[in-house]
Amino acid sequence: MARYTGPVCRLCRREGQKLYLKGDKCYTDKCPVARRTYAPGQHGQSRKKLSDYGTQLREKQKVRRYYGVLEAPMRKYFKMADKAQGITGENLLKILELRLDNVVYRLGLAASRAEARQLVIHGHFTVNGKKVDIPSYLMNVGDVIEVKEKSKNSPKFKEIQENHQGNTPSWLQVDAEKLSGKIVAEPSREDVDLPIQEHLIVELYSKNNIK
């Protein structure tokens, strides 16, 4: 399955809530979700009661869209989470949070996860001094991420230096002046500030025998 390339605001409307896929636009009156609170398409305004399976599926799709993850990697992450010690749903969210593109976004080095993914692919970041251009690269505690020296002079990163917002989660440490950050702890469930019911995803994959 190819990555979705259509208007991302349609994804938010489909889930019935903001997924914050457009960066600053999501916080303005121009956000389509605020103006049209129904799903897109010809039958978008007709309300249908979801079955238990439908509710679980919608939650899984919502999380995939939050983090920009396709189905195959999502299943792989679930298997990893299921085999790890602890609560499977929380393990799954921890894995998603530790993706390189999400860490870039959480550090405030990109306006959205989609932008972070694009910046990573274009090779603007190093991890522990080595160039990494794979958005799905999983970070570890102690890893240091930094914008490449050649990229620091670009207008994009100059703007980030000047306007960086100090709302970095506690498991990350950021140096806005140096455009770098470090993972100082594993993310906990309390660090995930998204309206996610991860137990529904676990129920869905368990029902489908994803092991």
Rank of each mutant, 00 (worst) to 15 (best):
K130Q: 15
L100I: 05
L107D: 01
R3N: 05
L119V: 06
D133F: 13
G108M: 05
G123H: 00
M139R: 00
A72W: 09
D24Q: 14
G108S: 03
T5Q: 04
A176E: 01
T28E: 00
V104D: 08
D24E: 15
P73M: 01
V132M: 06
A114I: 15
S188G: 12
T126D: 08
S188T: 15
R189P: 00
K152V: 04
E15Q: 14
E97Y: 07
Y38E: 10
Q42S: 13
Y66N: 09
V184F: 07
S136G: 08
V174H: 05
V184S: 08
E177M: 07
T5S: 15
L204F: 11
R75M: 10
K76N: 12
L70F: 05
Y4P: 05
A72V: 12
E177S: 02
S112N: 01
E71M: 08
C9I: 03
F78Y: 15
G23V: 02
K22P: 04
E115S: 04
M74L: 13
I95E: 06
K131N: 08
E115H: 14
E15W: 09
C12H: 00
L98V: 01
N163R: 09
L93T: 08
L119Y: 08
L57E: 06
T168V: 14
Q165T: 12
A81M: 01
P7K: 00
I95R: 05
R58L: 15
A81W: 06
G181P: 04
Y205A: 07
D193N: 10
V192Y: 04
S188V: 09
G129V: 04
N128T: 04
R14G: 03
N102G: 09
S154E: 13
P73G: 06
F125K: 00
N167I: 11
G89S: 00
R189D: 06
R189S: 09
T168Q: 09
G6M: 05
L204E: 12
L50Y: 08
F125L: 12
